[in-house]
Computed example of a mutant assay.
Amino acid sequence: MAQATIIERFQNFSPDGVKTEEGNRAITQFLCVTNQSLNMVNCPGFINMIQVISSKLVLKSRTHFMRYEVSKLYEEYERRLMMELRQVENIAMSFDGWSDSSNRFEIEF
């Protein structure tokens, strides 16, 4: 594999570059899996951590993650789940609820 040019390296971190997309996906996964508020991306400590990890990654706003990144991740997981479910003959599901305050979601219209 040939070494990437300087221009190719910088394009990786352009607004639609490969590394930017990978970074946004990883941040979205972190926020969703750890049940964090999307406001976390506005937290100075979180911003500092991202800058230390990759100074070239420009952190997007909470609104961007809410409108675009969470939807993309949901669609990706939904596709993967549907592909897996197409391969099974039988399935059993069970749901359990508990009173953990972090497990309560309210939708306001």
Rank of each mutant, 00 (worst) to 15 (best):
S54H: 05
G45N: 09
L57Q: 13
P44T: 06
E76R: 07
M82W: 05
I6Y: 07
R62Q: 14
P44C: 05
M82V: 13
N39M: 15
Q36C: 15
R80T: 10
N24K: 07
V58C: 10
G97M: 00
E21R: 13
Q3N: 14
C32T: 15
S54V: 01
N35M: 09
V88T: 05
Q3Y: 12
S101R: 03
T5M: 02
R62H: 03
I27T: 04
N90Q: 04
S14N: 01
L31I: 15
R67Y: 12
R62E: 13
S37N: 11
S55E: 14
P44S: 08
A92L: 11
E84D: 11
Q36D: 12
Y68G: 00
S61I: 10
M40Y: 12
E22K: 09
F65N: 02
I6E: 11
Q11I: 07
A4C: 13
I50Q: 15
F95K: 04
M83S: 14
S99C: 05
M93W: 02
V18H: 10
C32E: 05
N24L: 05
M66S: 15
Q11P: 01
Y77G: 09
G45L: 02
T20P: 01
M66T: 13
S101W: 00
V88K: 09
L81Y: 10
G45K: 07
E106G: 00
F95H: 03
N103P: 00
E8Q: 14
N103R: 06
N35D: 09
N42H: 15
S61N: 06
P15K: 04
N90E: 06
D96L: 00
F13Y: 12
S55Y: 08
A92I: 10
R67S: 14
S94G: 06
R79V: 09
R25G: 03
S55N: 13
I6C: 03
S14H: 04
E76V: 01
P44W: 08
H64P: 01
M49W: 10
L73A: 02
G17W: 03
R86D: 14
Q36K: 15
G17E: 02
Y68W: 10
N103I: 00
